[in-house]
């Protein structure tokens, strides 16, 4: 039994640190570069991504296991996954709007963007390829979302500090952001070997 819990922990930990979706698989780069100028925006987007990623990974697991595999429709999984994600985002938007205006103001504007965030679809596809179980999928989705949030928050913090630094002209903006991302990726590689995932 304790072994099973270790498995969950290992997946969760490695999804955040050693196999960070953003820094090792380059998933969700567009919003990472576009929305990382301010810590506040980054935090809102990061929370929204974590929420959607956790829920859609579990939903997609259920749909994949009980609908796609029994009917031999594996080739349709791209379309099915993206529809599940889009539908979930729509429903989440409506629910959040009803539940709390404050939360809606903080997350609402980010939700529509998330449908086309490659990290969300990517995590679902990885979940299928690695043949995770329901529990593992949940922890994998949650960990990946948190890992993504951690990366974009760190990035936004660094970029805010950098607004006063003098960067060579052509490198300013995206170029320097990519170099920071590279250095961050090296730092995250330092976690590998901490846990066997």
């Amino acid at each position: 039994m304790s072994n099973e819990y270790m498995g969950y922990f290992a997946i969760f930990f490695s999804a955040i640190f050693t196999q960070n979706v953003l820094l090792t698989y380059y998933l969700g780069m567009c919003p990472f570069l576009g929305a990382s100028r301010e810590v506040k925006t980054a935090a809102g987007l990061g929370t929204a991504v974590t929420l959607v990623m956790t829920c859609t990974t579990v939903l997609n697991y259920i749909v994949y296991k009980y609908l796609i595999v029994p009917y031999d429709l594996e080739y349709l999984r791209f379309i099915v996954f993206i529809i599940v994600i889009a539908a979930f985002v729509q429903v989440a938007e409506i629910v959040i709007e009803r539940l709390s205006e404050k939360l809606y103001n903080a997350l609402g504007i980010f939700l529509p963007l998330i449908t086309v965030n490659c990290a969300i679809l990517g995590v679902s596809l990885f979940m299928v390829i690695r043949e995770y179980t329901l529990g593992l999928s949940f922890f994998y989705g949650l960990g990946s979302g948190l890992g993504w949030m951690l990366a974009i928050l760190a990035m936004a913090g660094i970029r805010q500090k950098m607004t006063k630094s003098r960067v060579p002209g052509p490198l300013a903006g995206t170029g320097i952001a990519l170099i920071i991302a590279g250095i961050m990726a090296i730092a995250f590689m330092g976690f590998s070997g901490v846990i066997k995932g």
């Binding site: 090792t24 698989y25 052509p170 995206t174 990519l178 990726a185 090296i186």
Partner: peptide, 25 residues
């Protein structure tokens, strides 16, 4: 070996951007 790992991609793209933008400007 850093080149075939994730950070390499970031660095190469950043340097490429640098060169191309420099030439354009």
């Amino acid at each position: 070996s850093i080149m075939v790992m994730a950070p390499g991609g970031f660095f190469v793209l950043a340097i490429l951007l640098w060169v191309v933008k420099g030439l354009y400007s």
